[in-house]
């Protein structure tokens, strides 16, 4: 968890910039205002989280952890979860970055088109989109039927009930987060910088590598962390679109709650998933300033 702390330190730096240095000493007005808000979060979110940790160790006991880690299916799903989350993040980055770039650097018509596509997708329910992908990808679905009709294939392409399908669905749902994060930063880069670079004879690729990419890195980092962390918690979409091998930790947790009525076991799995998220953030904080990442979580400007 030290990683999260160092990450927090970065946020603190960010906060420090906003400090009103000329503030008069005396009653700390902002602390007074903020304390009730802090208490609300502590009670409404802190207590539930504490209960998860507490139950994992006491209901019936620490045996929950040995049970969980002794279960080969759970161990497998843990690795699968990481694998799918990494893949979804990479896919979101590869497809989302050009999207964000074009959205920031093109004419009015193109920008509107991309923005509308993004928003239409963003505002359609995740569950509904999951179902729609099923309609598109299944053996008797739109894609296979059309390809067959055109005579391009004889047997249906294996694009449902496997990792590919799970990834397609998850990428489509998570890419918008990355696009928004990157878009915010590219918009902030003055186009003149790029013009200048190219005016001085840089090729487009060189200009991109030396100007755009470095300046948009914080957005990339922010988007990737956001997508990755969200992906770790996904389970309904991979369950519906993937096969039994695409089993995510979230599904095991939900099952332990709903079917086995063993909240302690579910909580132990939850704590393990939480530790995983903590590790990711710690690792990220080592390589980049977390403040930049977090700053980009916002859509402003």
């Amino acid at each position: 968890m030290s990683g999260r702390d160092s990450g927090v330190a970065e946020v603190t730096d960010l906060a420090a910039v906003g400090i009103r240095r000329a503030g008069r000493p005396g009653i700390d007005f902002w602390t007074l205002l903020g304390t009730p808000a802090m208490l609300v979060v502590l009670v409404a979110f802190g207590v539930p989280l504490f209960m998860v940790v507490y139950k994992s160790a006491t209901d019936p006991g620490l045996v929950n952890y040995t049970d969980v880690m002794g279960d080969p299916v759970f161990r497998k799903s843990l690795f699968k979860t990481i694998e799918i989350a990494v893949a979804a993040t990479l896919a979101a980055l590869l497809l989302g970055y050009p999207y964000a770039y074009v959205m920031a650097r093109s004419g009015r018509w193109m920008r509107s088109f991309l923005l509308v596509a993004l928003m239409v997708s963003f505002w359609t329910s995740l569950l509904i989109r999951t179902f729609a992908w099923q309609v598109l990808l299944q053996n008797t679905g739109v894609i296979n039927t059309e390809l067959k009709r055109l005579g391009l294939i004889d047997t249906p392409l294996p694009i449902i009930r496997n990792e590919f399908a799970a990834l397609v669905g998850m990428t489509q749902m998570l890419a918008p987060f990355l696009i928004l994060a990157v878009y915010a930063l590219i918009r902030a880069i003055p186009p003149e910088l790029e013009q200048a670079a190219m005016g001085m004879g840089a090729r487009r690729s060189t200009m991109f590598r030396t100007v755009v990419l470095p300046l948009s890195m914080p957005g990339v980092a922010a988007g990737c962390v956001l997508v990755f962390v969200l992906a770790l918690g996904f389970y309904i979409t991979p369950q519906v679109l993937g096969g039994p091998s695409e089993r995510m930790v979230g599904q095991s947790i939900a099952e332990a709650v709903h079917a086995f009525v063993r909240p302690g076991l579910a909580c132990a799995m939850a704590v393990i998933l939480l530790l995983l998220v903590g590790l990711v953030l710690a690792a990220t904080a080592r390589f980049m300033r977390l403040s930049d990442i977090l700053k980009m979580g916002s859509m402003s400007e």
Partner: peptide, 14 residues
């Protein structure tokens, strides 16, 4: 036996 059967089943299916 629900839990033990499910474990075996999941190991088999995934």
């Amino acid at each position: 036996n629900l839990e033990s059967v499910t474990q075996k089943w999941n190991a088999w299916a995934s």
